[in-house]
C-alpha cells in the first residue's frame, strides 16, 4: 500500500516525482534534486499531510558503482501517525549537491553535517557545514563511501605520525578564538600558524 500522500504529491509536483515504490510496507518517493526542498517543505506544511517531524537524514551508496548516491529523508507526521521516505538520487559524475533543509527543521543541522562528513555530499544553504564525527583536518576522504577501504586510505604508520604531530593548541577553530577576542592574546607564532590555516598536522 503506497502512502495516501502520493496522489497529492503527484498533482502538486508532476514530473518532479520520479518514482514511487514500497519496500517492507514503507513508501519511498524519489524526487528530482532541483525540487527536493520544495517537496519537503510542501510535505511538512500542506494540510492533510503535515509530516512535521524529521526522523532522519542519511545517504546510501550502492555496491554497484554505476548506481547514483541517494540522500534519504525519513519524515513522520506526529498527528497522523504516518511515515514517508523521500529520496534524492545524485549522479556521481556531477557535483554531489542538494539543498539543505535546516531552514525547515533545525534537527537537520547535525544530520546533514554527518552526511557531509561521511559521504562528501554538500548541502547548499547549510549555515555551518563542517565535519562533525571526524576532525576538521581529516584528509583521508569520506569514510562511508564504497571506494574507501575499511582501514582508511593512509597507512597505519602515516596515521600514527599525523596523530603524534598533532598540535593540541590548534584544537580551537579560528572562529572560536575570534568570538572571545582571545586570538589577539596568543603568541605571535601561533597566531601566524592559525592564520595560515595550519591546524595540527604537518604539511
Amino acid at each position: 500500500m503506497t502512502s495516501p500522500s502520493i496522489p497529492g504529491l503527484r498533482a502538486e509536483f508532476g514530473p518532479a516525482v520520479e518514482r514511487v515504490l514500497v519496500s517492507c510496507g514503507d513508501t519511498i518517493v524519489y524526487v528530482t534534486r532541483d525540487r527536493s526542498h520544495d517537496v519537503l517543505a510542501w510535505l511538512k506544511d500542506a494540510p492533510g499531510h503535515q509530516f512535521n517531524y524529521l526522523t532522519d537524514v542519511t545517504a546510501v551508496e550502492y555496491r554497484d558503482s554505476e548506481l547514483p548516491l541517494e540522500v534519504v529523508y525519513q519524515l513522520r507526521s506526529l498527528s497522523r501517525k504516518a511515515d514517508i521516505r523521500v529520496k534524492v538520487a545524485l549522479d556521481k559524475r556531477a557535483p554531489l549537491q542538494v539543498r539543505s533543509v535546516v531552514d525547515l527543521w533545525r534537527g537537520a543541522d547535525w544530520l546533514e553535517r554527518e552526511v557531509y562528513d561521511l559521504f562528501g555530499i554538500t548541502f547548499t544553504g547549510h549555515p555551518d557545514l563542517r565535519r562533525i564525527l571526524m576532525w576538521e583536518t581529516y584528509a583521508e576522504g569520506y569514510p562511508l563511501r564504497k571506494d574507501f577501504p575499511l582501514r582508511g586510505h593512509f597507512s597505519r604508520a602515516e596515521q600514527t605520525r599525523q596523530a603524534l604531530a598533532a598540535n593540541p593548541e590548534a584544537h580551537y577553530s579560528l572562529e572560536e578564538l575570534s568570538i572571545a577576542e582571545a586570538f589577539d592574546e596568543l603568541p605571535p607564532d601561533m597566531r601566524q600558524r592559525l592564520a595560515r590555516g595550519e591546524r595540527g598536522y604537518l604539511k
Binding site: 532522519d56 542519511t58 551508496e61 554527518e114
Partner: peptide, 12 residues
Amino acid sequence: PVRWRIRPPSFL
C-alpha cells in the same frame, strides 16, 4: 547489508 544506518537518539 549495503548500508546500516543507526538513527541515534542521543545525537539528535
